[in-house]
């Protein structure tokens, strides 16, 4: 969330609600709506660390709104973020741990585990298909996000198939 907000502010000053809307329109229905409270908390923290600068703007008949501007340090942080390769783990797979440990514990059987997991993946795949159909065709970012999720699921299903072949 931190860097996403900073990156959005690189375009120009904005207040919390505008940032929320920007994230929503970017990812469409493909991704959970960002929580406004969480956005305000993150903005306060970013301001404390000197990456953004807040300024209250008076509004007639309504409470002031606080508009944020990216500082020099903020610009550097965004540039550094784009510079570094993203090396987070691609898969965090608790299921595989269960599958590997099942025969040692005798607490679950592997075929049952595989079948249950396949159902879960197929259900996700199905909701993804519906999501893609419901989402605006022209929202390329949202469509690509859904397609990425589907390709990950396909890989998970292929892996599951391999597990079934090898472990049976």
């Amino acid at each position: 969330m931190r860097l996403a907000l900073l990156a959005l502010l690189a375009k120009g000053p904005a207040h919390g609600y505008e940032l929320k809307q920007a994230l929503e329109s970017l990812f469409g229905s493909a991704y959970p709506q960002p929580n406004i409270g969480q956005i305000y908390v993150t903005l306060t923290r970013l301001e404390k660390s000197g990456l953004i600068q807040g300024e209250d703007v008076a509004q007639s008949g309504r409470p002031n709104k606080r508009t944020y501007t990216l500082t020099e340090a903020g610009h550097e942080a965004v540039a550094a973020w784009f510079e570094e390769t993203s090396d987070e783990p691609r898969v965090r797979d608790e299921f595989f741990m269960k599958l590997a440990l099942a025969p040692l514990t005798g607490a679950a059987d592997q075929v049952g585990l595989i079948n249950r997991q396949r159902r879960h993946y197929l259900n996700l795949m199905r909701s993804m298909t519906r999501l893609a159909a419901a989402e605006d065709r022209d929202n390329k970012v949202a469509q690509l996000l859904i397609e990425g999720a589907m390709l990950h699921l396909q890989a998970d299903l292929d892996w599951l198939e391999r597990c079934q072949e090898e472990l049976e």
């Binding site: 994230l23 229905s29 493909a30 991704y31 996700l124 993804m128 859904i146 999720a149």
Partner: peptide, 16 residues
């Protein structure tokens, strides 16, 4: 109906 809304987040996590 399956659990639609934002199912992509079950597979790909973008925001913390």
């Amino acid at each position: 109906p399956p659990p639609t809304g934002q199912a992509a987040a079950h597979v790909v996590r973008l925001l913390g």
